[in-house]
């Protein structure tokens, strides 16, 4: 709960810092998915903890000394909000001045993310994918051969059922808007992916994993997660076949700007698909574990 509030607070902080794209992501991840996973884990491993004394005083001393040293170190850092700080003078101005004419989309964050730093983003998507595979291999879902329609408590709760019906479609629509409007406003594949996943996770929480799996099955998620990464990579390959470099979108069409547009939309789609699929998959894995231990407990 506190962690959710913390996530929301840091999201509003990022809006103040002009980082609207980052704020979107943090709002969905920090106050939605992350505390949820923490709670599920606590539900699985039990909330009792042993109190150990004697460790905290040396730790406190160490932390205080490190903190003091770091604060002394910050005194030589540039002032907050200064326009002449080293961070603002190297590659940042280039992006701000040139991206409008080179890439042709208003949202600089998207053009840096998808085009200038396309390799980097490809790597990040691959890391998300690998982490998803890691979770999958650690917490393998038992494939239930018998599809028994489990009527969970949410079916009896009228309020929950109706609220979910009102809330979930707009969230999905909003995720799609964020996905395809990422060129012009704040948004993009990463944000849309987590928002989309949040909607499906909400549905899973209301109706249980079994029913949610009838809507979005596990096999589909696995295919989608891999498909997103491959889509991203294949854009790079197509641009190579057209005579450009890997992930050089200007080679995708006659007009370099059009090529950039196509490339960015397609790779953002790939990012969105992978992120959404992996997030839902991770949640299924965790929730499936809870169900298993719950049934064993009964």
């Amino acid at each position: 709960m506190l962690s959710g509030i913390y996530g929301f607070l840091s999201a509003s902080f990022f809006v103040l810092m002009d980082a609207v794209d980052v704020a979107f992501t943090e709002a969905a991840v920090g106050s939605g998915i992350s505390p949820l996973l923490m709670l599920l884990t606590v539900a699985l491993v039990g909330r009792n903890e042993k109190h150990e004394s004697g460790k905290s005083i040396p730790a406190l001393v160490l932390v205080t000394i490190t903190g003091a040293l770091l604060i002394i170190g910050t005194l030589s850092m540039p002032e907050f909000g200064s326009a002449t700080a080293p961070a603002q003078t190297h590659v940042g101005p280039h992006y701000i001045e040139k991206s409008g004419s080179e890439i042709g989309i208003p949202n600089i964050v998207t053009s840096v993310l998808a085009s200038y730093r396309g390799f980097d983003t490809f790597g990040e998507v691959a890391v998300v994918f690998t982490a998803g595979i890691g979770v999958l291999s650690l917490l393998m879902l038992k494939s239930s051969t018998v599809q028994k329609p489990v009527v969970t408590s949410a079916h009896k709760h009228k309020v929950l059922r109706i609220v979910s019906k009102i809330l979930i479609p707009p969230i999905l629509l909003f995720a799609l808007y964020v996905q395809f409007h990422g060129d012009y406003g704040p948004g993009g594949g990463f944000q849309a992916g987590v928002i989309f996943a949040a909607a499906i996770i909400l549905y899973t929480m209301f109706f249980g994993v079994d029913i949610a799996q009838q809507v979005v099955s596990f096999a589909v998620l696995r295919v989608l997660a891999a498909f997103g990464v491959l889509l991203y990579g294949s854009v790079g390959l197509v641009s190579m076949l057209n005579g450009g470099d890997f992930l050089d979108y200007s080679a995708l069409a006659e007009n370099p700007i059009t090529g950039q547009h196509i490339g960015i939309i397609v790779i953002e789609l790939g990012v969105g698909i992978t992120v959404a699929a992996i997030m839902v998959m991770i949640f299924y894995c965790f929730a499936g574990q809870v169900n298993d231990t719950g049934e064993a407990g009964q």
């Binding site: 810092m17 002009d18 980082a19 794209d21 980052v22 992501t25 943090e26 991840v29 920090g30 998915i33 992350s34 996973l37 961070a87 603002q88 590659v91 940042g92 992006y95 701000i96 600089i108 964050v109 840096v112 993310l113 730093r117 980097d120 983003t121 990040e124 890391v127 998300v128 982490a131 998803g132 993009g188 990463f190 944000q191 992916g193 987590v194 992120v275 992996i278 997030m279 991770i282």
Partner: peptide, 18 residues
């Protein structure tokens, strides 16, 4: 504001949750 840190952190958040 400088867009570069935004890009780095945007991806870092999603990788972080994963």
């Amino acid at each position: 504001s400088n867009p570069l840190p935004h890009v780095l952190i945007l991806t870092a958040i999603v990788v972080g949750i994963a």
